[in-house]
Design a protein around this nucleic acid. Structure first.
Length: 443
DNA sequence: GATCCACAGGAAATTAAGGGTC
DNA sequence: GACCCTTAATTTCCTGTGGATC
């Protein structure tokens, strides 16, 4: 018999907690300076790229029309920061010149604004927020007319830079209908103003599949942002530390370690900043005086774990169901990979357990499995097992069971599903006690 | 070398939801 | 209110495929 040990806990004193926080030393000068969206005055190791883009865009100061620009480089290499930095400087310069029409800079993250209609609508709304266009419903040619009118009538002879970040998300099979084709031709319709496209991509081979006309138009000028090296990330962190933290909080060794971690992850400066911020928050919360190296390891683990847990919690319901199907198949047969056929069988059983969920087709399920593969939750590959097994996709879960359990621990519906035993493992030679599986040793 | 398995995955069609226009 | 338009998610249909087995 077990005795339940419950120690009586006092109520959490929120007022005292707030007072303690206010009395503790503030290690941050400007916390936001460690945010990836913060654009500093100085962007170390990007001078060449800044110079190249400045040379392309400077013609706007003499009412010239710059070329379209295509930028590529891996995540966290400063592409967006450099563009935003230049747009700010160029706009400020234009404002200081009399009778100078300032160029418009419209920044769109194509990962959030994915369809052609939405891109046009977003540009329309940024040009004239007082008269928003509907998020859906208008024929595309009507929307295009509205955009052309707003550009020509409201902005006269000025230039409008349209920055399409993560432009890969806008690629369309029907090249003539694609938004990129349309935007690359819009200057042929415009009478007064001009649109300059700035495409930003994380993938080097993005332009290979583009329609040749879009490619020649979009890639008039091209620029590569190389990944940062550890020393370069160190310099970036040093600059930001000066702005963000009080002196003597972070040692050189700590910055070097964070730089090395980030350099290992494709030279991602964004990751380095996140790690520095997390580590500094540990220092603050624990009332410490310095950033210890051990805290960086702890912050690194937590960043990885948090990222996965949040990602799983935000998944659509059907993808959660598929994730649990894979988890259960591997839980009861950890030695072998599971395949789409087995996953689909377990998935169908899980769907039957729920009240309001429709069962997707296998075709759709394979697409969702591929999405989870891309997200780094699964590792899958297509394998042929010949005449008996056919050709199928084998799937392995590459995150830890504990991360899945943690993701669902606050929701009884999902945590109960994690205890489900698929019919494929309810064999005669297996018995289940308390949710654990035992092989029957004798009859 | 032919056959067969169990899908993979492309493409087009369908459905649902949100909205505009007349 | 009927009809038209959009997006996004999903289904349906179909051809293709790798490799063990015949």
């Amino acid at each position: 018999m077990y005795k339940l040990l419950i120690t009586e806990k006092k109520n959490f004193d929120l007022d005292k907690f707030f007072d303690d926080y206010l009395e503790s030393p503030n290690i941050f000068k400007d916390r936001n300076a460690l945010d990836s969206s913060h654009i500093p005055e100085n962007l170390p190791h990007r001078y060449e790229q800044i110079k190249a883009i400045a040379e392309i865009t400077v013609v706007t100061l003499r009412n010239g029309i710059p070329s379209n620009l295509f930028i590529y480089g891996k995540t966290g290499t400063g592409k967006t920061a450099v563009i935003k930095h230049i747009s700010k400087k160029l706009t400020n310069k234009c404002k200081r010149i009399n009778n100078m029409a300032c160029p418009n800079w419209i920044y769109i993250n194509s990962n959030r604004v994915k369809s052609g209609y939405r891109v046009l609508a977003t540009i329309c709304n940024r040009l004239n927020p007082d008269d928003p266009v509907p998020p859906t419903g208008l024929p595309r040619d009507v929307l295009l007319d509205k955009l052309v009118n707003r550009l020509d009538e409201n902005y006269g002879n000025s230039i409008c830079f349209v920055v399409l970040d993560e432009i890969d998300c806008l690629r369309s099979k029907k090249s003539k209908d694609s938004i990129l084709y349309l935007l690359s031709r819009i200057n042929e319709i415009l009478k007064k103003s001009k649109v300059i496209l700035v495409g930003i991509s994380n993938t080097l081979n993005f332009k290979d599949d583009l329609d040749p006309r879009v490619k020649s138009s979009l890639c008039e000028e091209e620029l590569v942002f190389p990944a940062y090296k550890a020393d370069e990330i160190y310099d970036i962190l040093k600059e930001r530390t000066k702005i963000a933290l009080h002196e003597d909080i972070v040692t050189e060794g700590a910055l070097r370690l964070i730089s090395a971690f980030a350099a290992r992850e494709n030279g991602d400066a964004r990751r380095a900043l996140a790690l520095l911020r997390k580590s500094a928050e540990f220092v603050e919360r624990r009332n410490l005086k310095k950033l210890d190296v051990n805290l960086i390891y702890e912050a690194q683990d937590q960043l990885d774990s948090d990222k996965i847990v949040h990602f799983i919690r935000d998944l659509p319901i059907q993808q959660k169901m598929i994730l649990i199907a894979v988890y259960l198949n591997q839980k009861f047969d950890p030695e072998n990979s599971t395949n789409t056929g087995e996953i689909y069988n377990t998935y169908k059983e899980l769907v039957k357990q729920s009240y309001n969920l429709n069962c997707l087709t296998r075709r759709r399920m394979t697409d969702l499995i591929k999405e989870l593969d891309l997200a780094g939750i699964f590792e899958s590959k297509v394998v042929s097992f010949g005449r008996k097994g056919g050709r199928t996709r084998v799937v392995d879960l590459i995150i830890e069971d504990a991360q899945i359990i943690k993701s669902f621990e606050d929701d009884s519906y999902w945590s109960e599903l994690l205890q489900y035993i698929p019919s494929s493992v309810r064999r005669t030679d297996l018995n289940v006690y308390d949710g654990n599986l035992y092989r029957r040793l004798f009859e």
